[in-house]
């Protein structure tokens, strides 16, 4: 009956229309994108700290990746190759953002990046939150508290000042020193 015919589900329709193509661009994109979007986005976000830039750079990484997917064949895995693309994308971004010399950039890039970028051995990327916890453990109490308030609990300066019994000006000084120390610890790979 016509009535039943009209109730073809979307899935059935997809199956009926989908040609059995041997070409599997789509599967590669699926692997490339679906499997890696979150981990790459998180990595990039931990380098820029805001959504606007994270979305922009993540788009750049995946568009580059799609355009040059053939160069991924030699990589140990699609994911490690994607991280390499992300790394160079971030380096380019930082070059303009911080106006730093190249070797200083290398220092920054090494943070959270374990293992050589050689072919064969996929780099080990430590999840940003593990790095944060490692750093927090090593910080003096004041520093740890101010960073927990300001970032992990996302409190305003005012709320933080109330919580810690400090003036707002003091909180600004304290967060500066805490992040400075945190940056040093991160570099040391502690």
């Amino acid at each position: 009956m016509t009535l039943r015919k009209a109730r073809i589900t979307e899935n059935n329709q997809m199956r009926a229309d989908k040609p059995p193509e041997p070409e599997r661009d789509s599967d590669r994109l699926q692997r490339l994108y679906e499997d890696n979007l979150h981990v790459i986005y998180r990595f990039i976000y931990s380098k820029v700290g805001n959504r606007e830039e994270a979305e922009d750079l993540t788009s750049q990484v995946f568009i580059k990746a799609v355009r040059t997917i053939d160069s991924a064949r030699g990589a140990a895995s699609i994911q490690s190759w994607l991280f390499q693309v992300a790394r160079t994308t971030i380096a380019d971004h930082w070059r303009s953002f911080y106006q730093l010399r190249a070797h200083s950039l290398d220092d920054l890039l090494e943070a959270g990046w374990e293992g050589p970028a050689e072919s064969g051995a996929p780099p080990r990327i430590e999840p940003p939150n593990d790095r944060v916890n490692r750093i927090l453990e090593r910080l003096p109490d004041h520093y740890r508290d101010v960073l927990i308030c300001r970032f992990l609990q996302n409190l305003s300066i005012k709320e933080t000042a109330l919580r810690m019994g400090l003036s707002e000006a003091n909180v600004k000084v304290l967060q500066f020193r805490a992040l400075k120390k945190a940056g040093r610890l991160d570099l040391e790979g502690l």
């Binding site: 976000y45 931990s46 911080y98 959270g112 970032f151 992990l152 992040l179 400075k180 945190a182 940056g183």
Partner: peptide, 11 residues
């Protein structure tokens, strides 16, 4: 590095 730490903690 200080700014980087801010980005890391923001994440």
């Amino acid at each position: 590095r200080t700014y980087q730490a801010a980005a890391l903690f923001r994440a």
